[in-house]
């Protein structure tokens, strides 16, 4: 029975790795079952994921092969050798403690820069001061309120532009977004930019990214915020240039003003 069970257990690594190979190479019938299109200048999260995947993949394949081999070789039904009466090996324990320890420490140190770039080093202006937010995104059940500072570059002034679920940014620029919540926790998730940050009522936070491809993408809420959590969907539009973005901003602002006047007249 050893052969049968060994094969049976080996099905998981065989089919599992097969699944990953199909997904990574985007093969039918599971097209699109891997990372969504990356539109960020930085590839570091994808690269780090891949690095850990190859490393852990090697460990997974290694232990799976050892297990499969042991299950055949030491099957009590066919193994005629006497049992190796052993309580362990000091040397082996030392080896298999130190090697993983070194590898794990290496991963830990190796990724610190990426984390610091994503969370600590906010982009700066040419004069070295912190870049001001391009927009403020405020989560509330179940929509994203988006506020652009307008011409004066300052939030909470009369020339601000207010929109719902509609975030526009220019391409090829560092963008800082200020994120807040009005009610409960939400999480501001941009799958294509590998950005995710919980928004917490009472806290002001900033996230930043640098998009290198224009188009429209999903803004996902990734933290449970109530029954309507699933429909808290926003749209991120990356404009091909700063000019295009300004044009859009002007138009959207004009629309807001006319809507405002017609409201006032009523």
């Amino acid at each position: 029975m050893g052969k049968f069970w060994s094969f049976f257990f080996a099905l998981v690594p065989i089919l599992g790795i097969g699944l990953f190979v199909f997904a990574i190479n985007d093969w039918a019938p599971i097209r699109g079952h891997w990372f969504p299109e990356l539109i960020s200048k930085s590839h570091v999260i994808d690269n780090l994921f891949n690095f850990i995947m190859y490393l852990t993949g090697a460990v997974f394949i290694g232990t799976s092969i050892v297990l499969a081999w042991i299950m055949v070789k030491y099957d009590g039904g066919s193994n005629k050798e006497p049992v190796i009466y052993s309580h362990g090996s000091h040397t082996l324990e030392v080896i298999w403690s130190i090697i993983p320890a070194v590898v794990l420490l290496f991963i830990a140190i190796y990724q610190m820069d990426a984390w610091a770039n994503a969370r600590m080093y906010r982009p700066t202006l040419s004069d070295g001061t912190e870049m001001p937010p391009h927009a403020r995104v405020t989560g509330r059940q179940f929509e994203w309120k988006i506020q652009y500072p307008g011409k004066d570059g300052k939030l909470d002034t009369p020339d601000d532009l207010h929109l719902i679920n509609d975030l526009h940014v220019p391409m090829d620029e560092d963008i800082v977004i200020r994120i807040e919540s009005m009610d409960v926790l939400h999480s501001f998730f941009l799958p294509n930019l590998r950005v995710k940050q919980d928004v917490v009522p009472g806290m002001q936070q900033h996230i930043w990214f640098h998009a290198v491809k224009d188009g429209t993408y999903d803004i996902v809420c990734a933290e449970l915020c109530g029954w309507g959590h699933y429909k808290m969907k926003g749209r991120l539009t990356v404009e091909p240039s700063r000019e295009e973005f300004d044009k859009w901003l002007e138009k959207a602002y004009a629309e807001q003003e006319t809507a405002q006047y017609s409201l006032d007249e009523e």
Binding site: M1, G2, L67, Y74, S86, G88
Partner: peptide, 11 residues
């Protein structure tokens, strides 16, 4: 894994 190595496994 070391426990299984060199054993007579009963499935």
């Amino acid at each position: 894994l070391g426990t299984l190595h060199g054993a007579k496994i009963q499935y």
